[in-house]
Amino acid sequence: MFLKIDNINKTFTSEAGNNEVLKNVHFDIKENEFVVIFGPGQCGKSTLLNIIAGLEKESSGNVYLEDKKVTKPGPDRAVVYQNILLFPWLTVMGNVEFGPKSRGIKKSIRQKDAQEYIDLVGLNGFEKSFPVKLSGGMKQRVGIARAYCSKPKVMLMDEPFGALDAQTRYLMQEEVVRISAHEKRTVLFVTNNIEEAIYLADRIIVMTNCPSTIQKEYVIDLPRPRDYTSEEFLRLRQEISSIVEFTR
């Protein structure tokens, strides 16, 4: 199996008591599969992604990437965050070429490569701009280009469009579909937006709220690009919404 999430449990311990956020989370992802983790609430999903990224330690269980246990962050797993986290002191080009530069790739080669991804996300002409000059959507594009450019085996996307306005969000969803058609990657995408999940996913994993555990899986085989208003789309939306327990 390409990426194996093997029975992960996570409990945060603090003076206030134990907070169990992940419970028996167990699933596999095939190579080049676009998997969306969908669930209500603020509990567990980002933690799961951080565990896969190697930034956080699981309480029990294992993560295997190509049968190798994940223990620490590495360039085979790139992360795109909601609050983007570009390096503000670097230009767009500097941010996108950060990964390849860390791997010691020659300047001429890595910049040519970075330029391709900058073009791919539609930021041609902004190579020398600093992040502070860019809009939220543009920053997120840089984040995506940076992640792709480091040639990870898995892309981990943590509610990447959560901070964008609705219009930009739709636009970015279309972009992601276009980019992943152009360049196949294994993607694990976390969202609490049901439409976004159905629009993007090969497979949706629905998670419950605190502690998060897998409730149900849906394989979405609608042709792309998908139509938010098609009968099938709306039926899926209705079905998934009906099983999700929203808590106040």
């Binding site: 930034l55 962050p73 992360v79 950060f98 860390s102 791997r103």
Partner: peptide, 8 residues
């Protein structure tokens, strides 16, 4: 973290 993720 981000720098670590990108292999620095």
């Amino acid at each position: 973290w981000v720098a670590q993720i990108f292999g620095a």
